[in-house]
Design a binder for these strands. Sequence first.
RNA 1: GCCGAGGUGGCAGAAUGGUUAAUGCGACGGACUGCAGAUCCGUUUCCUGGGGGUUCGAUUCCCUCCCUCGGCUCCA
Length: 490
Amino acid sequence: MRPVRIYDTLSREVRRFQPRTPPRVGLFVCGLTPYDEAHIGHGRVAVVFDVVARALTHWGYRVFYVQNVTNIDDKLLRRAAELGAEPLGLAEEHFRSWARSMDRLRVRSVNYYPRATDYIPEIIDQVRALVDRGFAYVADDGSVYYEVGRFPDYGKLSGQRVEALRPGARLEVDRRKRSAEDFVLWKAATPGEPSWPSPWGPGRPGWHIEDTAITGRLLGPQYDLHGGGLDLKFPHHEAEIAQSEGATGLAPMVAFWMHSGLLTLRGEKMSKSLGNVRSLASTIDSEGGEVLRFYYLNAHYRNPLDFDPATSFAEAREAYRRLREPFDRLTERSRSMGPGGTTELPDELADAADELEDRLDELLADDFRTREPIAELFGWGRRVVEWLDRTPDPSPSACETLLLPYRWGEEVLGLFPAPDREAGDRTLDRVVAAALAARARARQRGDFAEADRIRTELLAAGILVEDRGGSSTWRHRPADGATEASTTTD
RNA sequence: GCCGAGGUGGCAGAAUGGUUAAUGCGACGGACUGCAGAUCCGUUUCCUGGGGGUUCGAUUCCCUCCCUCGGCUCCA
């Protein structure tokens, strides 16, 4: 297991990561409340922690990654009522859309997406423990509240002091609460809304309780990593600490708090009320999942990332295309060359490939910097192309060695999916090859008008032809505005 | 007001108590090409918010001020 350094929001420092029971790592990330469509800010969190899990796995840790789905809450109920839909069904519908987006963003490290409503017994147990231990009280209507004043550490994560919260006028006035800063653990049932029986009467979970009930069950009272967007730090994560540490008496609940920076739109946070949300699914449709993934990973996860619709994707698209150009050329060779060429790699390049992988790991292991490995891969790409350009017949093993850093880039960053061309595409390969052969003959006899006509017609059909040295290669031309990987078939 | 994160070249965005401050985008020039595309090479000269301090040396550490963003019980 490679040593890893991680910034912990609670201690506000980068520390050496030490799992409680190596090599196992418990990772929990606050997931979505599927009351509406996800936006590109949500996508960032998903990709960031996907890389965290992939990297740890690559380094020999055995990660169990849990991301909850809040399928019962106020907003979801309100939305369902507006649509005349059944709340849990609406949640599942939005979750399916989320899962599709995750698939296309190549997020695949989440092991389990528990639904809040599948953990009602655990939630009730935890609320009961909090009542028994004197951290919570039951109101007249059967709601249960956490009494924040009873938990001295409240505010330790966010640096907030309870006294400082009170002047903030946004605390809801609620006569059932002993103190304005108390928060609800269990909400007494409202007619017409889903509810579950409990020792305090029918009701449903409060906003914060499902996370700690779920992690308590799946990861234990103390675990390794907890992630989420920076905007959840207060009050949500503060409440989690109060719940878990209050209920179990075991602290700290989690060894490392990781918060990903927010994605802003021209300097402002995306939010429904500002009307500046940008849908995740439609962005993936227009840009491609890989470009979006690259865009996220091109910044450090803790920094704010400002999105400008006019320029951000255009730049990411171009940069990503160039990043994977050498990779595409290498995989193209190994696909089409058959027995392949005979020119072996010069020693210095072979050695460099070996050293680079270590370097990539080392960079990433320092608080999951992703930008620097990407910078290294750009540099590697230049060397690869420079060599390929003057090597007409690279050997298969040379290509394989040159691909090593990209294999790392795929396994850990998820940025280099192998082009997958199945039986149907073989036909396409042959058809295009025939057209290119005709064009090559035309060029040979100096009939450039005919050669250009073939090239133009292929382009109209979505095939981009490029002459390289004596031969021509082709790739799928990205559709307007879209930039699916050049070798993507469809 | 309180808490937190930021301010780096034309733009995006890294890093570091010390030789030329990554990488990418854009722009310009060159090589290659029948043309194009892709690629490579070069250029884009004094770029680290202001002011103090510590230090042989600060963009980095400390103080202070200014500005931006986020949180302050809906938030990824």
